[in-house]
Structure formats: C-alpha cells, structure tokens
Amino acid sequence: MPQLTTQREAKFRARRDQIINAARDCFRRQGFHGAGMAEIAALSELSVGQIYRCFTNKDAIIEEIVRRIVNNKMLMIARDETNLNRLAGDLAYRVIHRDAQTRDDDQALMLEVAAEATRNPVVALILQDADTLLFRQASEMLKRLYPVLSDTEIAARVELIAVMTEGTDFRMLTAQKASPTQLYSLYKKILQNVFPPMDK
C-alpha cells in the first residue's frame, strides 16, 4: 500500500509540474488576464477538470509559481550567504540568477505578478506573503553571520539588498549604460561599508 501511495503522490506532483510549466508559458506570453484555464489545459495536454483537481483556481496556480520562484531565491541566498564579492559581481554584471532562461522567465513572471497585485487583492496577498518569507529568511541568515548587529540594523541591510537585487531585476529590461567593472567596484564599497568584517 505505501508503494501505491508513493506512486500516486509522484503522479500528482508530476501533473502539478506539467500544469505549472504550461501556466508559466501562458502567463509570460499573454499575462494573467489573457491566459485562461482552457489554454493552460491545452498546453499542458490535460483537461480543465484535471487542472481543477490540482489547483482550485488560477490564483492558486499563481501562488504556486511565486512559491517556487521564492524557494529558488532562498536557495540562492543560502548558497551565497558569505560571499559579498559574488553578490557585488552579480549585481554589476546583472547575473542575479545563474541560469539565464530561468532568470528571464522568473523576472518576467514576477513583474506580471507585481502588476496583477495592483488589481487583484488575492495576488497582492500572495506577493506580500512571498516578500515576508524572503525577508525573514534573509534576516535570519544575516543574523547568523553578523550577530553583533541589532534586529533593526539587520532589517535595514536586508531592505538595502532587496532594493539592489530587485532594482537590478527590473533594470535587466534595459541596456546597461554603465561599465560593469566600475559598478562592481561601487557595489563592493557599498557592501563593505554596510557589513562589518566577520571574525575569522
């Protein structure tokens, strides 16, 4: 019986992944309003009924997409937590995410989420919850690294990093107008000024 349950769970997860992949493509091409459940069903090669067995509505699909993007960001934060030079380089060279295709897709989808949040209170709450989760994760990571900083000092630094990374995400839509080498030097100075040296 456990084997059968595991197989069912795996099939359910695979079906959700299939729906999410199709929805990401539809939302990127047509926006949340332009993409209907019928189109997502057609692209995922499932029926609308099968989609509703996995997700209660389109907002639930959006919530799962945002959750996955946030989880990827949290993994990136954890991986790079001690490397301020790498963060400076990522910002300067606009490589916030390592995989260019994922970066472009996630960036476009989060911009779509932000636009939808201005019209849809459910999506606004999803975005707010995602931001709270990321902020808490980043704060906990910085507190481990810099225990001498107060909670308000940690919060200010997390907000600064959020503004720099999210601003860079938005700026990726335009041609870079400054030398990445000079930007790297500036970002390094900023990060060195706001983060105290860690004890060896």
Rank of each mutant, 00 (worst) to 15 (best):
L75H: 12
A108T: 10
T5W: 10
S44G: 10
N120W: 07
R16S: 12
T82H: 09
I96L: 15
K189S: 03
C26G: 11
L149K: 00
R28F: 01
N85R: 13
L149S: 09
Q101A: 14
R144G: 09
I61V: 12
A88F: 11
I190V: 15
S139R: 06
I190C: 11
L87P: 04
H97L: 09
R28L: 14
A88W: 08
I51N: 07
I126N: 02
T6H: 09
L84H: 05
G34Q: 04
N85I: 08
A178E: 15
E166C: 04
F55E: 06
V95P: 02
K58Y: 05
K177P: 02
C26Q: 07
T102W: 06
M172E: 10
I51T: 01
T181A: 15
L133V: 09
L43A: 10
H97F: 09
R94F: 07
L191D: 00
N83I: 05
A162Q: 03
V158A: 08
I77F: 14
D104W: 05
M37G: 05
E153A: 02
R53W: 03
G49F: 13
C26S: 13
M74D: 12
A10K: 15
M198D: 06
D59F: 00
A114L: 09
I77Y: 14
L125N: 14
V148R: 10
K189G: 03
R24G: 01
A60R: 08
A92I: 12
I161S: 06
S179I: 11
R171V: 04
C26L: 05
T82I: 05
A10G: 11
L127K: 10
L91S: 09
Q18D: 08
A108R: 13
C54L: 05
G89V: 03
G89C: 07
E166G: 13
V123D: 00
S139N: 06
L111Y: 02
T5C: 10
Q192G: 01
D199F: 03
C26Y: 00
L46P: 03
A23N: 01
R94N: 11
N21I: 07
E153P: 02
F12W: 09
D99H: 07
L142K: 05
